[in-house]
Design a protein around this nucleic acid. Structure first.
Lengths: 110, 110
DNA sequence: TAAATATACATAATTTTCTTATACATCAAA
DNA sequence: TTTGATGTATAAGAAAATTATGTATATTTA
């Protein structure tokens, strides 16, 4: 996928769901691909286990729908999950800032 | 440590060595702690296996020195490792930009 | 019309990576 | 003399990702 996304992927998923309300797995992969201009391609082997884990933790709930002959499983953040999502997104934001400091040491007066 | 750094840590180490020329393990942990204002604390259990792996891959070389009674193992990037380091740092920079796009969707006209 | 591509989800086996705990050693400070 | 800081190392277990595969439908292309 992209080695650097490891560890951040689950929070990226939460961020997208937080912004968009309701999404299905394939849609998430396409959205990330679109935002990053093809740079980040999430594989199913990484995506689905994360979605299932977040569902098991009751951070997400899912409902299946048939659209144009194909099955889609829509996920959304639960009320309980929302607090967790907000926290993790804040941590991811802090990490992004830290990354910028490390990558641009002049900003950090290193 | 901080779940989001997973996957980026080895490149962060390469970036610090690229900027500073020569560092030892403990120094790397302190530098990251300093730059991120205590936010990111790298554990030894994560740090040393990465340093050893990079050394085994001949991306880094190490030399041990005794300073003020204590042993330090200084690492630096090899000529061969430099190309790899430059590539990975560029990828990390791209990832940081992608993260910003995901975190600030208005910038990406999502 | 057959094949390829895109859409859509799922999982199992393997590998990689991280966490946690532990171990050893020196030096400085309380 | 005990604690905290400095310094490296590794082993066991847990967590996570990669790779490969499987299933199914719709659309596009040859």
């Amino acid at each position: 996928m992209n080695q650097h996304i490891k560890g951040s992927l689950s929070t990226i998923i939460l961020k997208l769901l937080h912004d968009n309300g309701r999404m299905y797995g394939y849609e998430i992969t396409q959205k990330v691909k679109e935002i990053t201009q093809e740079d980040i391609q999430i594989t199913e082997g990484a995506l689905y286990p994360i979605l299932h884990k977040l569902e098991a933790e009751e951070i997400l709930t899912a409902e299946t729908e048939k659209v144009e002959g194909r099955v889609r499983k829509y996920y959304k953040i639960t009320p309980k999950g929302n607090e967790i999502a907000v926290d993790r997104i804040a941590e991811l934001r802090a990490f992004a800032e830290n990354l910028n400091l490390i990558l641009n040491p002049k900003l950090a007066l290193q």
